[in-house]
Design a binder for these strands. Structure first.
Lengths: 199, 199
DNA sequence: CAGTATAGTGACCGTTTGGTCACCTGTCAA
DNA sequence: TTGACAGGTGACCAAACGGTCACTATACTG
């Protein structure tokens, strides 16, 4: 993304909105964080709400690109070792990337105050990742790696517990290691119960 | 609970804090919702923060009573039919009870802005229910109803997906039926994979 | 009956907030 | 050279906010 002031404002806005909430964010502090005067913000956006909407536009575009097209699916793994590595890698990225952490916080804390956030939250927390793993499991069943069953339901029972532990990481960063360890255990446990036993 | 003004204030505060957030709640509207003048609030609480803290005291007391003692465990079921009935009953209660809905909303939206909420959120969303089902599964394993395994991990993989769907109900009340149906399916699916096969 | 605590009111105060305005400065095209 | 324009500043405004205060009415108590 370009390093224009307009974009810098959105970056700083994401931080403040995520940590203090929409109502808790005031334009003076936001401007100060950018080494700008408050009135400078109004050269780029018409109002506080306008900044908020621009930020949501950006987030919607991001999710449309990430979850919308089926092109960027992770390639279906050929073994469970490969599966574990891919999955744990994606989770680690998701847990540690500062921007994604802030996005999750914003979606959680503002989901009941804004209609667009509400929809994005469902997409992010429920449907997005579950759909992806649905496709992955489907092809793993065809390959005979995984016991036959409803791929969507299995994907959901795989995704939801991981998501719960990711939320724990956001909420209590002190317990990140513990949570990551539990995620790893859960993944093993999930594999143990759903892998097709073969020679 | 007694019908004193002091309690009525807390009830109305729960509604407003849950729906508008702490920052988004102002004392004029809160007083108006109670048919009181704003200054009357100060006869019962010293400040906005004081109301907030009193509400959290009440919530902490509730959770200590609900999750703290092991006395009020649901009695371990003797069959899977009984299990399904108990579980679905508890879930239905949790999904439809207005006060509990508001509590969940408050915990979600304020978890990053208040230390006490942070801890309550982990207790409520992660440890509380999982611990309960851990005990239940343990005794179901002993009874030979359930395949042997780590009861804690199984309880977690049972609880987390249900919790995710309960959150969906809060976020999009229009999809309550759909979510309840999916919960029911998930429970069946969970039983199918973890029940000990017997004559 | 007098005195005192309780619960409630409306006017008021200082601060914070989103937003506006006149003004300044450098860049770049006519 | 000049004039338009994008980007930035500080002073200012009205509204909203949390909180205070003097005052009133009711009820309980010595």
């Amino acid at each position: 993304m370009e390093n224009t002031t307009k974009n810098n404002i959105l970056d700083a806005a994401l931080v403040m909105f995520a940590e203090r909430g929409y109502k808790g964010t005031n334009l003076r502090d936001l401007a100060a964080a950018l080494n700008l005067s408050k009135s400078a913000l109004y050269k780029h956006y018409d109002s506080k709400e306008d900044i908020w909407n621009a930020l949501l536009d950006k987030m919607e575009a991001y999710y449309a690109q990430r979850f919308g097209s089926m092109d960027n699916l992770p390639k279906p793994p050929d073994s469970w070792e490969e599966f574990v590595q891919t999955v744990m890698g994606m989770i680690r990225f998701t847990v540690y990337d500062p921007q994604i952490i802030l996005t999750r916080k914003l979606l959680l804390t503002e989901q009941f105050h804004d209609e667009r956030v509400r929809k994005l939250a469902t997409k992010h927390f429920l449907e997005g990742t579950a759909n992806i793993y649905g496709k992955v499991f489907e092809s793993m069943m065809e390959k005979g790696l995984m016991k036959k069953g409803d791929p969507a339901m299995l994907a959901f029972s795989f995704t939801a517990p991981i998501s719960a532990l990711v939320h724990l990481c956001d909420r209590e960063p002190d317990r990140q290691e513990e949570a990551m360890e539990k995620i790893s255990q859960f993944v093993k446990c999930f594999i143990a119960t759903h892998a097709e036993k073969q020679a």
